[in-house]
Simulated assay, not measured.
Amino acid sequence: MTTSPVTAHVIRSDAEAIAVAHRLAARFAVEASARDRERRLPVVELDEFSASGLWGITIPKEYGGAGVSYVTVAEVIKIISAADSSLGQIPQNHLGVLDILLQTATEAQKRYYFGKVLQGHRFGNAFSESKSKNAGAFETRIRFDKDSAQIDGEKFYCTGALFAHIVPAVAVDEDNKAFIAFIERDNPGLTVIDSWDGFGQRTTASGGVTLKAVKVPLSAVIPAHRAFDVPTADGPISQIIQAAVDTGIALGALEETKRYAREARPWIDSGQDHGWQDPFSIAAIGDLEWRVHGTEAILRKAGQAIDAALLNPGEDTVARASVVVAQAKVLSAEIALLASSKLFELAGTRSVLGKYNLDRHWRNARTHTLHDPARWKYHLIGNYLLNGVKPARHAWN
């Protein structure tokens, strides 16, 4: 499925990254509904996406990247997700891996893999497992032997792996310490399975990966556990991208709501000639609008907290980043579900017709917000504010 890397443009600034995201989003939106309806995998769109340079914007300037802020990263993912949330989700693990590389790799590894990304290579992921005890437990094993390592296991929810040039896989050693092996897509023993049949986020190809005696050189392995052994912003970075996807879904649904609510027939008791004159519809749109913009404000604040933690990593800065990102995660999940549901209420019965495919917004929101439960975010926030308990450090905080 994956294509050869398309030579990527190198973005130089935050402003350029946002401008490029807007241009791409305008194109991606045109056939987003058709891709969802037909489950047409976005191979061409992904090549354009990674070739745009947006997949390399977090690489620090000293390694040839733009080193943009995480305020900008969240904005970019939000913009793309408002057009097509599957495309917005696919680079999430790619960007997370770039930070783990920055935190735990050797200098030679950083220069090599950052260089690959700047050339247009995409990382997929082989992280999560469906049969382990919980999301943070891994049964995939890595065994070291002199100058190489062997990985064996089975993965699921492997977003982007089908489209990747390199598949980073998480595996644990005999001490249960997690490592990431960077596996070339054509490596013998690596099999990517297009088995994702979820009703939402349909074109992320978040299927499975099997790893059977996959061998890589030691130079392709990094000690990922070190990103959580000490305070780093890797967890908040993973989570803010999730929140940005949900915020984008809400924005996309809200724009559809405005469009279809204007075209809806007025209710019989309203005494109005047009649906857009309905006072209750007007009030509901106003309510959705401030909720979406409030979520955008918290998302920006979360990006600022991550930038502060990266500038001055420590127990307190990383904990604060986790807490503010958790607030963004709660709000973005709530508004994505609310906006995508209100769409039908305000647009009227005709909006449920299959030809419009408007249910994709709710399906995408319901699917993507399940990545980690918002109910635990409320507890994380309250426990920190009330009792001073810092969040546990892992990829979901």
Rank of each mutant, 00 (worst) to 15 (best):
G248C: 08
P279H: 05
F228T: 15
R300E: 15
E296V: 13
Q272F: 10
A244I: 09
D287F: 03
I298L: 04
D229F: 10
A283M: 07
Q242R: 11
G303P: 11
D278R: 06
A264F: 00
A261P: 03
E256S: 02
D246W: 02
P223S: 00
Q304C: 11
D273H: 12
D246C: 10
K258S: 04
P223L: 01
P231T: 07
E263T: 13
W267P: 09
G235R: 07
G303Q: 06
R265V: 15
Q272P: 01
K301A: 12
S270F: 05
A253C: 15
L299W: 02
I298M: 06
A250S: 11
I298A: 01
E296K: 02
S281M: 09
E255G: 03
G235V: 06
L251D: 09
P236K: 00
A305N: 08
I298R: 00
E256D: 06
G235I: 08
D269R: 02
H274F: 14
D269G: 11
T247E: 09
I306E: 13
T247P: 10
L288V: 13
D269S: 15
T247V: 12
A264I: 09
A250W: 13
G294L: 05
A224P: 00
I237E: 09
G286C: 06
I240V: 14
I249V: 14
E263Y: 14
E296G: 01
V221C: 06
W267K: 14
A224I: 10
L251K: 12
E289F: 10
A302S: 07
P223Q: 06
A250N: 09
Q239I: 13
V230F: 07
T232A: 08
A308D: 12
A308W: 03
Q272D: 02
T247D: 04
R291Y: 08
I285G: 00
G286M: 12
A227H: 00
P231R: 01
G271K: 12
D287T: 10
G275N: 09
Q277K: 01
A261C: 10
E296R: 02
P266V: 09
A261Y: 06
P231I: 03
E296A: 06
L299V: 10
I282G: 08
Q239K: 11
L254Q: 07
F228N: 06
Q272K: 15
I298V: 15
V292D: 00
I285D: 09
P223V: 03
K258N: 04
